[in-house]
Design a protein around this nucleic acid. Sequence first.
RNA 1: GUGGGCGUAGUGUAGUGGUUAACACGUCAGGUUGUGGCCCUGAAGAUCGAGGGUUCAAAUCCCUCCGCUCACCCCA
Length: 428
Amino acid sequence: MYQAPRGTSDILPEQQGIWNFINNIAKNSSEIFGFKEISTPTFEETELFQRGVGSDSDIVQKEMYSFTDSSEKSFTLKPEGTAATCRAFIENGMNNLPKPIRLFYISSMYRHERPQSGRLRQHHQFGAEVFGDESPEIDSELIELALHYLNSLGLKNLKIKINSIGDLTTRSKFSEDLKLFFGPYKSQMNSVDKKRLETNPIRLLDSKDNNLENLKENSPKSIDYLDEESKLHWNSVLNNVHNLTKTYTKFDIEIDHKLVRGLDYYNRTVFEIHPNEEKSQSSILSGGRYDDLMNLLGGPDVPGVGFGSGIERIILNLENQQFLLPDNYINKGPKLTMISLGNQDLTNTCIEIATFLRNNNISVILAPKNRSIKGQMRYANSCNSENVLIIGEKELEKSSALIKNLKDSSEKPVDLSPKNILKILKKI
RNA sequence: GUGGGCGUAGUGUAGUGGUUAACACGUCAGGUUGUGGCCCUGAAGAUCGAGGGUUCAAAUCCCUCCGCUCACCCCA
């Protein structure tokens, strides 16, 4: 038997409601903030991600779905949205549009990981990016979009972790100092951390090794290494975000000097949003600033800031807090189910009426015609149909039918002209 | 890549060595003449994840593989 590939899953009809709800909120929040939707291809040239996400990152090192097509070119299913959005920006000359340029997307992402709760090989992200403005107000505006989105979804008890990791030059000094600080403890580290100490000491702050916890509390902090400009930027972002939490009251702020992020392209502001009770893979939205990325990808010197939010993780969190889906997202049955008891002529009459009604925006299904009236009624009921129209040979002779409301069980004869039926249904 | 837990009808479960593998939900049919939801009756539906082994006898014990799941790593 065929199965969905590992780490992927079907979204069944009964789950579509919550997905539509989240997609609509994402779109609505984005539009309120003036963001425009962009869609990029499912796959891109592998090199885009190697350069964009960074060849040292875990994503590129071991999680990409790469393949070679018949022209021997290597492509990769997109593991994240920012690099692809930057590519589209460059390729379409969006640098000539009035800046800043605000974009959002809702798209599938693919990473070859071992699946577990909140982690899949195909997942969906709502992402937003702003290009062409390095002011701190843009960082906090983007964060506000995130808060607005999560707030509108009805998520409660969230915490925003925020940090500034400075720019490329100040970071190298920070990195060196971390190496000096952690160096003496190398013998106590696990093999992964030992390697990090050499190649990317900043990532040591990410380590979940409990042995390092106490050490990390006293380790050098990236915000102490910021140059004047970055420091002003950081203070301003922080101040703005504090102001936001007056309106968006469900969020706590935590300055987390251990937050450094695993994607190589970030500079200055980095942030993550988590539920207050953290578990594994609890981050539901995360992002930061990436002023050098566009350039790195061969584009103009344009700063950027963005976030991505995993929709599956949002759903997990909504389910954890006994979320009730608004009524209008709950699967409704058809307005009418047609029940016919008789020969082919009668069936044809039903089809004609159904066609007419559908073309007038009424949802109609036909009950399976070979069943008894009881069987057809049961079918209509299990489909949650609002009404049924019963036509038998008796009715056909008199050119009439019975219309029955399944909610209140009321029933009345109607004239069998499509227009008349339409008129009656519109009134119900 | 590493480790733990788990694989029995469509779904959720019971069954831990002994006839035709049980129950609930779901599906389909019937419950008198042409009426759904509740209720009642019946039917269909499972090579007990796959392969091998032990045994007179295996869903049950052993081995291998596969899958799912949780955790690590990492991330959304």
